[in-house]
Amino acid sequence: MPISRRDALRYATAASAMAGLGAATGAFAPPAAAAGSTLIDFAMRQIPAQDIRAAGHAGVINYVSTSRPGSSFGAKPITLPYARSLAAAGLAIVSNFQYGKPGGTAPSDFTRGFPGGVADARTAWQLHTAAGGGQSAPIYFSVDDDVDRETWNNVVLPWFRGINSVIGELRTGIYGGIRACQWAVADGVIGRSSTPGRVWAWQTRSWSGGQIYPGAVLYQRIIDTASNPGPVVGGIRVDVNDVLAADVGQWSLHP
């Protein structure tokens, strides 16, 4: 897909900043070594930055959404003081929105169509900026279900169009299985990383048949469940995500 001169300049600036970040903090190495880095995601409570570093992770994917009715997750949403503590420790921060879920006390966000996408994007952007998130940083929106093409076309896609109408495609990302990531790219509802060939796709191992989408920037390799617990960091179990690109949408690259 062609890019504008403005985008080309922004991507070149981001690449330069990426090199500086890797040298200064060690949070991300240059692209050749980026695949060895990991980010964790979690909702139960805020994990101290020193515990994340001690566990060997490069940063977090944290929520810019609130808790569902009947729940009270301490890490939803990310707060400005917590974000500052992570940044001070040289940890990367990436934004994700998920309020509802299948079988939860609120339905999956993507079932709410275009108007739901508008509302979710407004909420996500407000919480993202309140916590210090970068003005050009993407927000990943969750498709936490095994959707088929018909559901994508008739239900999920209108939701993403609503999101795009608020924050634009360049700042929109997707969390989902491999097919959802591919469809998001084909329909032009997510943006591109400054890493060549990569897009704002955070792919989960679920519903992916052991395949990794070549354009993904993040891959959720370990998913914490009751039957397959994730590793413990700071006293709670977490999901672990492989970093597949130098630019995964971390705030420090997208001021």
Rank of each mutant, 00 (worst) to 15 (best):
A216S: 15
A29G: 15
S4Y: 08
R122V: 13
G168F: 05
I3F: 09
V189D: 04
A216E: 02
P214G: 09
R5V: 08
V147G: 06
T111V: 09
N96A: 13
P2Y: 04
A8P: 08
L39E: 02
A83G: 09
G134E: 03
I40P: 04
T79P: 12
S208P: 02
D41S: 02
V240I: 06
A186M: 14
S136L: 10
N241K: 03
A92F: 00
A184Q: 06
V238Q: 06
V143D: 02
I174G: 08
G209L: 03
L80F: 04
I212R: 12
G215D: 00
S136Q: 09
T204F: 00
P214N: 09
T151L: 05
L91E: 01
S208L: 01
A27D: 00
M1K: 09
A14G: 15
Y175L: 14
A32I: 13
G20T: 12
S71T: 15
V185M: 13
P2G: 07
G90Y: 00
L157M: 10
P107V: 02
V233Y: 08
A23R: 14
S67Y: 13
G90N: 03
V238G: 07
M44S: 11
Q50A: 11
G20K: 15
A58L: 07
S4G: 04
Q182P: 07
A226T: 14
G113P: 06
F110C: 01
A131I: 10
T105A: 14
T204R: 00
A24C: 04
N241Y: 04
A121Y: 08
C181K: 09
R10A: 15
P48G: 10
F160P: 05
R198Y: 00
I222K: 13
L170R: 11
T204G: 12
Q250C: 05
A19H: 12
V185P: 02
M18D: 13
D109P: 03
V118S: 12
P196K: 01
Q250H: 05
T225V: 15
I223K: 11
F114A: 05
D41H: 03
S65Q: 09
V248F: 10
V233C: 03
I47Q: 01
V60Y: 09
D224A: 11
L127D: 11
S194P: 05
M1T: 11
G134V: 03
P138A: 08
T204I: 04
D51K: 11
V118Q: 13
V238E: 06
R171W: 05
W200M: 05
G20M: 10
W207G: 01
F97T: 00
L91V: 01
K101W: 05
H254C: 03
N62A: 15
I212M: 14
A8M: 12
G210F: 09
S208E: 01
T25M: 06
T195N: 00
A54V: 02
N96S: 15
T129I: 11
I174N: 07
M44N: 12
F97N: 01
G177R: 06
Q50T: 13
I178V: 15
I47Y: 06
P255A: 08
V243T: 07
I139T: 12
A17S: 14
A54I: 03
